[in-house]
């Protein structure tokens, strides 16, 4: 009998996929026609930028920090994408590279001065918001044609957003979970003292992870503005909370470098689809963030239950 009971570890790893599957079944039940190429294309339209932002957050959470500026940063990138990148592509590209460098710098500052990341990144969220307001005082701008064409690319059989998300999950999984470098980067979150004793520079791991967060933030902003074709300073403000929720939904722990890139991408998709389910159920959009909160709480409750079962064994 007990042979058929899956181990808690397996259940925990499968939880993000199960939540997504449960949500898909619910959508299929309410609106069967949504489960099609066009349906997914519409529903998962915005999954791509959210998935990128979630992976950016995951990089920061891996080294035991939290990035409360990612939403403002993605908005800033979107503003650059809708202005400079279109008018003077070279300047736009340099600014985006500079923005990634600022992210790396913030990582260095947090490590060197041993600062609480949530305060520093909250301050940075004001910085990025201010930059966006300077760049684009009122909503507008237009994106380069190549960018719009790229993100609206129509792939056969499987929507582009799903392919990109899958590729993203796979690449980050291999890089972070399967490579020697990834083990060190996660180790810096799990046991910094041990990693430092083994001769690795904690400064470099932190700078690397923040720089990666910057890179994924740039990808998020560009894919977002490619889809919307215009930007404003507040376009992605809610990504901050959404990305944290995605990482945690996907099985990431808050401390200790325990993260799951595949789970995080699944978590981002779950949160994106939750909005669709609500509109199929004709529930007012007022409750959209509330539903995301409720999903988060339910999944965390399930995980707490699994953990408790594990302890009992």
């Amino acid at each position: 009998m007990s042979a058929f009971v899956p181990s808690p570890r397996l259940v925990r790893a499968a939880l993000p996929a199960l939540s997504l599957a449960a949500l898909l079944v619910a959508i299929w039940f309410v609106q069967p026609r949504a489960i099609s190429y066009f349906g997914f294309n519409l529903m998962l339209n915005l999954a791509m930028p959210i998935a990128f932002a979630t992976i950016a957050q995951l990089c920061v959470i891996t080294v035991n920090d939290l990035d409360l500026s990612i939403g403002a940063f993605v908005s800033f990138v979107a503003c650059v994408g809708a202005t400079w990148l279109n008018e003077t592509p070279l300047l736009g590209a340099v600014v985006l590279l500079g923005a990634v460098a600022v992210y790396a710098l913030i990582g260095a500052l947090i490590h060197l001065r041993n600062l609480p990341s949530i305060v520093v990144t909250l301050g940075m969220s004001f910085f990025w918001l201010g930059c966006s307001v300077l760049l684009l005082p009122s909503p507008g701008g237009s994106v380069p044609a190549w960018l719009a064409a790229l993100v609206k690319f129509r792939t056969p059989f499987v929507p582009f957003a799903i392919l990109v998300s899958a590729a993203l999950a796979l690449i980050v999984h291999v890089g972070l979970m399967r490579s020697a470098w990834g083990a060190i980067l996660r180790g810096a979150g799990g046991n910094p003292a041990a990693v430092a004793r083994a001769g690795w520079s904690l400064l470099r791991t932190k700078v690397t992870m923040f720089a990666l967060a910057g890179v994924f933030g740039v990808l998020s902003g560009l894919s977002l503005v490619g889809l919307t074709t215009s930007a404003d300073a507040n376009i992605a403000i809610r990504y901050t909370l959404l990305s944290i929720a995605g990482v945690i939904l996907g099985g990431g722990e808050f401390v200790g470098g325990r993260v799951s890139p595949v789970g995080a991408v699944l978590g981002a998709m779950t949160l994106t689809l939750a909005g669709s389910l609500l509109s199929f159920l004709r529930i007012s959009p007022d409750w959209q963030i509330g539903a995301q909160g409720a999903i988060l709480i339910v999944v965390l409750a399930l995980r707490a239950l699994v953990n408790r079962l594990e302890r009992r064994r």
Binding site: L109, R113, L115, P116, V119, V120, L122, G123, M124, S125, F126, F127, W128, L129, G130, C131, S132, V133, L134, L135, P137
Partner: peptide, 17 residues
């Protein structure tokens, strides 16, 4: 407004740094 936001953010970071 833009410069004000930027300076507010930077000064908060500077203070805690």
């Amino acid at each position: 407004a833009g410069v004000r936001l930027i300076l507010t953010g930077l000064i908060i970071i500077a203070v805690i740094a």
